[in-house]
């Protein structure tokens, strides 16, 4: 088990009113699985991903990562944990616009204090993995949407994390490009053993996922388990 949540709840306070976004979410995610979090807009998918990605704190409940209770971690420890264990892929790619593709991929390694030479080599290897060798020196605005998302995916892989969290990674892409991205993520899951947690309302992704959690009454319940 790479990730487990226990009664995860997140509420927001808006003035005098309290809004519960997710309530008592219990996830059990096995290592090397492709997990799809499905639900309509506003169902709390992104909130859930932010919580399991340690980007925000739950109001109540616990998150265990490889058996370790992350609620005990300080902010600094959470950052370090995130840096080495979790990779993020965003819907809008979120590449740093002033850096080239290669530099964007090098960035998480720089934060992890990897040697510059190693950073460069690994970034090139990763970009080669997604067929972007010819784009290493291009900045995001010089790349297509699909290319940007591929750069974002390899950036997420830079520090070789075991968990990749992708928040609607195909949301900004056309159907074919979206499919390519999904195949890329699926391939990473199957060939490199990465655990992929992907938030989507794309039915195609739902069909290929090993495990599907669907929103239900402010929570997410496991609805599908496919054995490949």
């Amino acid at each position: 088990m790479i990730l487990e949540t226990q009664n995860l709840t997140k509420t927001y306070q808006f003035g005098s009113s309290t809004i519960t976004v997710i309530k008592n979410v219990n996830l059990e995610i096995e290592n090397g699985t492709f997990v799809s979090i499905v639900g309509p807009s506003g169902s709390g998918k992104t909130t859930l991903l932010n919580l399991i990605g340690l980007l925000s704190h739950p109001t109540s409940g616990k998150i265990f990562f490889k058996g370790e209770d992350t609620s005990q971690l300080s902010e600094r420890e959470r950052r370090k944990f995130r840096l080495s264990n979790i990779g993020f892929v965003f819907q809008t790619f979120n590449l740093i616009p002033t850096l080239t593709a290669q530099e964007n991929v090098e960035l998480p390694m720089a934060f992890a204090r990897v040697k510059p030479d190693t950073q460069r080599e690994r970034a090139k290897d990763l970009l080669q993995l997604v067929g972007l060798t010819h784009r290493t020196c291009h900045r995001p605005k010089q790349l297509s949407a699909g290319e940007m998302q591929r750069v974002a995916i390899v950036r997420a892989l830079a520090n070789d994390p075991s968990l990749i969290i992708a928040d609607e990674p195909t949301g900004e892409l056309d159907t074919q490009t979206g499919l390519n991205i999904i195949n890329l993520l699926l391939n990473l899951c199957k060939t490199q053993g990465k655990t992929i947690v992907i938030a989507t309302h794309d039915e195609k992704i739902k069909k290929i996922a090993d495990v599907v959690y669907e929103s239900y009454a402010r929570s997410f319940v496991r609805t599908t388990v496919q054995n490949r």
Partner: peptide, 13 residues
Amino acid sequence: RRDFATLYAIGAS
């Protein structure tokens, strides 16, 4: 702000 938030998310201190 989004760039900085991204930096935080991918591990910047």
